[in-house]
Amino acid sequence: MTSRVRPGPGGADPHVDGAVRAPRSSRRDLRPALNWLGIAPFLIFALLFLLLPTLNIVLGAFRSPEGGMTLDHVAKLFAPSILKAFWTSIRISLFSALLGGLLGFLIALAMTHGGLPRAVRDPLLTFSGVASNFAGVPLAFAFIATLGRLGFVTVLLRDWLGFNLYATGFNLLSFWGLVLVYLYFQIPLAVLIITPALDGLRREWREAAEILGATGAQYWRMVALPILTPAFLGTIALLFANAFGAVATAIALTGSSLSIAPIILFAQIRGDVLQDPSLGYAIAFGMIAVTGIANIIYIVLRTRAERWIK
């Protein structure tokens, strides 16, 4: 064990080199501390640029202007307009996560076990990589140009089939419109996350089930789906957070006409709409609370679903 630490010529890591020069007895005692030093840069980075900013928001949400504790800010979350915005956000995120997860699962299933040719797979995965990152402003443009009032498909439907999409009550700048747009990056993201799990289903499991008399449906119900459940739950959780925090797509699509939590917070920080500094803290805290609760639900479900994994 001790031979692992050897002095390097360049002295790349002063901490480790120092340990080698230190007397033998103290070297062993120092080892655990030195190991921590190895990931200290990462921990400091994470602390400064991920954890402390978040913690600052959480604490800020409970700090009164005089410096004491207060629940006044958080109480502002329960104003009807804010509640409604949160509720809309949660519903959009949940629908787009569930639908995206389900459709992504089906596409990944068709790709891995549905007999689609191998040649489809690589382009499909690469495209998923593209589409799952094709969020934000360009995506909004793409949908406006396609399904907006003067969009490509809207016009085609009207001119060729005499079908007026917008007469049906469809509106791209509505709840379902937003879900439709979000699905464009949610589905591919689900495909990317679920595909490895589906690849992990071993052929022998299916064959073992089959030779023991199981039908395809029985195999999926009793073996494959339970095995996939943790990965599926993880996908839904990630998709939920992904949609919940999406700001750019929504802003580019709707301006600020649709009131959802991240847009309100964004506008609040920019200072263009509301001028109540404490409300910003409260909304940010509310958003952390929602994603936090979503993840706790996910962790609980997952623990119950994967008793069989170490």
Binding site: F42, F49, G245, G292
Partner: peptide, 21 residues
């Protein structure tokens, strides 16, 4: 877990934290 946090905490919240901090 730490590396996955940016996927869980909304970006707008992190940005807000930066501005405050």
């Amino acid at each position: 877990f730490i590396t996955l946090l940016p996927l869980v905490i909304p970006v707008v919240v992190i940005a807000f934290g930066y501005i405050r901090l």
